[in-house]
């Protein structure tokens, strides 16, 4: 495999994990623009614990899970104020959270402040790839459980879910916390791929992109974040390849403008995301009895 392909796959894997971290709260109706914040907490916790020079030099088999769990704990504590907000206000609250995290870390000299922090333990895909597969399987598993059913009912109608005995607050906190855990996991894994972390990697643009992976992919099914992350990872590369082959300006300098047009087009054509339930049923034809297929 060429270094270029390996690089793409690394980015894809990280994108998929962070997409699931935003998808799980989104499936329960929470719009989370704080992906950058969780990524930073995970990356810096892991880097500080594992770095041989300036950190504690602990083995990554320990530091990656600890970093993810610590991020989950922060998410759990933050969920109480954040879940008091809804809709666009939740977007603002989670965005504010990410900015606060970035601000704090920028001013922490122990982790290098604005100059970033080196990560001494390098891994190749042998860690990232299996973890990504497990995260995807976990996403599918969780959505298929009664807990996942509760999440999706809260997304559709919180009050009715409550009347049917769903502990809506617990489920919402749970979804947010698991999302934070996965965000921390993505951050921890990032450091070991790129050997250097800095807060500037994870600004508002990063959080917007991750939310777009999920919204363009679709929040109704666990296929959404997988497809969304692939879409956002591959389309710019495909455009680049077309540009290199043809030399057409639209695909070279204007590559991101073309990508923007594609995103807007997706929003117009598939406002509920690429992978909706109806679309999946069409793909697999699993549950529509023949008598119900409209012949028009």
């Amino acid at each position: 495999m060429s270094a270029y392909m390996t690089g793409i796959i690394i980015i894809l894997c990280l994108n998929i994990i962070i997409a699931y971290s935003v998808f799980l709260p989104a499936a329960a109706g929470q719009l989370n623009l704080g992906a950058a914040g969780f990524m930073i907490i995970g990356a810096y916790t892991d880097a500080y614990l594992s770095s041989a020079d300036e950190g504690l030099g602990l083995p990554i088999a320990l530091t990656i899970p600890v970093a993810a769990l610590f991020t989950g704990l922060v998410g759990f504590l933050m969920s109480f104020p954040i879940l008091r907000t809804r809709g666009v206000y939740m977007i603002l609250a989670t965005f504010a959270f990410a900015e606060i995290v970035a601000g704090i870390v920028l001013n922490m000299e122990i982790v290098g402040g604005a100059s970033g922090f080196p990560v001494t333990t390098h891994t190749e895909l042998e860690v990232l790839l299996p973890v990504t597969v497990v995260v995807v399987l976990f996403g599918f598993y969780l959505i298929s459980t009664r807990f996942g059913l509760s999440m999706r009912s809260i997304h559709d109608d919180e009050n009715v879910s409550l009347l049917f005995g769903v502990n809506t607050h617990l489920v919402k906190v749970g979804a947010f916390t698991i999302g934070a855990f996965l965000g921390g996991l993505a951050g921890a894994l990032y450091g070991h791929q790129f050997d250097y972390i800095e807060v500037q990697n994870w600004g508002i643009l990063f959080s917007i992109y991750v939310l777009l992976y999920v919204l363009i992919g679709g929040t109704q099914t666990p296929w959404g974040p997988l497809v969304g992350a692939m879409f956002f990872t591959f389309i710019p590369e495909i455009l680049r390849a077309i540009g290199d082959a043809t030399g057409i300006e639209l695909f070279t300098e204007l590559r991101f403008a073309a990508f923007g047009v594609i995103i807007v087009g997706m929003m117009v054509l598939r406002p509920e995301g690429i992978m909706t339930r109806t679309f999946l049923e069409l793909l697999f034809r699993k549950s529509i009895p023949k008598s119900n297929i409209k012949l028009s």
């Binding site: 959505i143 298929s144 459980t145 009664r146 807990f147 059913l149």
Partner: peptide, 8 residues
């Protein structure tokens, strides 16, 4: 019951 994979 909450973590049994009903959908799978």
């Amino acid at each position: 019951e909450n973590f049994f994979p009903l959908g799978l």
